[in-house]
Amino acid sequence: MLKVHNIETFYGPIRAISGLSLEVPEGKIVALLGSNGAGKTTILKTICGLLEGQPSKGTIEFMGTPLNGLAPEGIVRLGIAYVEEGRPVFEELTVDENLLMGGYVRRDVHGLQRDRDRVMSYFPVLGQRRGQLAGTLSGGERQMLVIGRALMARPKLMLLDEPSLGLAPMAVKEIFQILKTINEEGTTILLVEQNAKMALEIAHEGHVIEAGRVVLSDQAKSLLENENVRCYYLGITGEVSASGLKRHRKKRWR
């Protein structure tokens, strides 16, 4: 569905993504893992056309349409929704108005009504806060709102950037459960996470990103069992010494 081929993205002279390729098959949840500064957000921004003039090399294709050079407004109209990191709601709009903005590209009033009800059924707390300004919501509620807002566009592909960051474990659990449901109902998901365990539990495939490259790709199940991933991203230490792992990692991943 989404094919990213050998892209390079620069911030001025600094290269943040170098020769990265990635595929998101239709109907799947694909997780992008990686530590802070690995380039995960940059990848999503490049896909959405938010970085002007980028990628400077390589191609991005969505369902056969090349995205290179398109403006973000055009890209989202193709059926890509991007849930940014930091859950930026429109603070001075109500919850309802935020959802309405999510469906901005659509004209079918009845469909919108139905989808709003669907979002409210996923996140009942949003239903209770419909008339409330989004700026007054809690972190978890904001995350639900930005996901709900993205759903209003009825996207074919949803990009999510660290939806769990800074949330209470209960809220994270609820949100990931809904993501799984959303996927089962037909939306493909590209999920960026530092919370590798949660992400891999719902994902089908995973890629580990380091310094702007994919260093490891596998089925989510295998990644969960992978020793290096367990050590570096799941915080589970095996019996191998840390220095041994480091050498091991360098050899295999770079």
């Binding site: 989202v76 940014e84 429109f90 001075e92 709009l93 309405l100 903005m101 901005y104």
Partner: peptide
């Protein structure tokens, strides 16, 4: 109106509004 709300959304967060498909 949809357009009126879009103007308010754009005033608050231009990038996110663009991601909603608003032609800035």
């Amino acid at each position: 109106t949809r357009l009126g709300i879009a103007i308010r959304a754009m005033s608050q967060n231009l990038i996110t509004a663009k991601l909603m498909g608003v032609s800035a």
